[in-house]
Design a protein around this nucleic acid. Structure first.
Lengths: 244, 244
DNA sequence: ACAAAAGTGTTTTATTTACACCCATGT
DNA sequence: ACATGGGTGTAAATAAAACACTTTTGT
């Protein structure tokens, strides 16, 4: 085996971010309008190239998000979604992008600072709509991000990452309902989450509201995994028995 | 937003493979002995750099595995495990590696061809043992690979990917037992897998054996997801009640 | 008092677990 | 016949789904 390092091809390495939140009654994703070619004017995931050859991937992700949208990832949940490296995904040259997935609460300021004039929350359904054109292979990435979020909240407590620091059981239930696009029984849901050790920590405080009984306020508990998992209502089975 | 493409730092991009199998009563992983510095002589995951700037990541993974171990990934299950890019993970220079996870059946020839004099199956427990030194951050990658395999067989039918094309329920059960390192009840396991639509397809054939009733032979069915999931026996709870 | 939303109780159903028992084969 | 696994039956425990009902607030 010879040392082939002199002929190692180098590629441009980028990081992109699929930042999800639940707001205004919908699962939304942070997108930016591209200011340069290719795909100038099109919507894209925030992201960009490593700032220098020694920048860590996670650091690059935080930095790019802050630069482009003003959002600070510090303290929030983020994880690798996947690496997208099809040879022709960028018309200019070979670019491989490591994509991160983040879950942020609604109160994360939409575009609090930075080079953010073009950053905006977009409903996931809009981003995934056939008529919406996204730059590069970003539509595929958004699909993967949404799918990952949907399955991740089944077996982890990450749905709470979409909630403000203090939240009610109904807030949390709405997260599940909007991410899954499935209604859940409020009563069974309540028992399930309050009965799962470490998911919620009661603050003792209560919400006041226009009408109805006030709800107890909770904070995120120490548990990360859900045992047993939260079951997604099964989509109606491909029915073999004729229903006409 | 300016075009910064002229100062994009370039990194060397590698692919590595965590190829798992179940053989000789253990979960094993394919490792190679490094022929060059750094870490010459140490065990490492098979892998290497892209062959040219336009090679797709998946193609590079297949190619590297074939070159280094003679194993053909064609038709087998493989998926991205993650991308490892800590700035200092390679002492020579910045290298980012996209790691793939593959599940192969035992009959996949250990090192059927290629530059394979150093390739060998190593029990996962050995690879993860404190006393075993692996190149780069490969021990961490192996940990991630094993953990991914353990959870993946819970909710997918991928355990069958470790079996020969035709296998018995006991073969499949052994896969679960060895990957999880937990005994399973043969009777309940049988009912569970034979009752899960699309997991197994009966061939009609039977095994003959030295003793005991012959077992029915099955092939992998069309299902990919397990519904409901196969439950891993919960590890005995961190006992709060003193047992002295 | 009433509407509205929170939260508890109870029943039905599905799934898992545990284990008794029968089945089919080689020796 | 009997040892050795393969496979089925069944009952108890657990969890999910469905839904009646009580609680606590604002108006």
């Amino acid at each position: 085996m010879v040392d082939k390092s002199w002929k190692i091809p180098e590629v441009a390495l980028a990081v992109d971010l699929a930042v999800l939140t639940v707001r205004a009654g919908a699962l939304q994703i942070m997108l930016v309008e591209r200011g340069i070619e290719p795909y100038r004017g099109k919507l894209a995931l925030p992201g960009g190239f490593l700032s220098d050859v020694d920048e860590n991937l996670d650091d690059a992700a935080s930095r790019e998000l802050a630069e482009e949208t003003g959002l600070e990832l510090a303290g929030l949940h983020f994880e690798q979604l996947g690496t997208y490296g099809a040879a022709n995904r960028d018309p200019r040259r070979r670019v491989v992008t490591v994509c991160y997935l983040a879950f942020v609460p609604e109160l994360a300021s939409p575009t609090a600072g930075g080079d953010a004039r073009s950053a905006a929350w977009v409903p996931a359904t809009t981003a995934l709509d056939q008529r919406t054109e996204l730059a590069f292979d970003h539509k595929k990435i958004v699909e993967d991000a949404v799918e990952r979020a949907r399955s991740k909240i089944e077996y982890t407590t990450l749905a709470a990452a979409f909630c403000a620091p203090e939240f009610t059981v109904a807030d949390l239930r709405q997260v599940y309902e909007l991410v899954w696009d499935e209604p859940l029984d409020p009563r069974n849901f309540n028992r399930k989450v309050t009965g799962t050790e470490g998911f919620l920590v009661a603050t003792g405080a209560q919400t006041s509201r226009q009408s109805g009984r006030p709800a107890a306020l909770y904070r995120r508990g120490p548990a990360h995994l859900l045992h047993p998992a939260m079951l997604r209502p099964p989509p109606p089975k491909p029915d073999t028995t004729r229903t006409s």
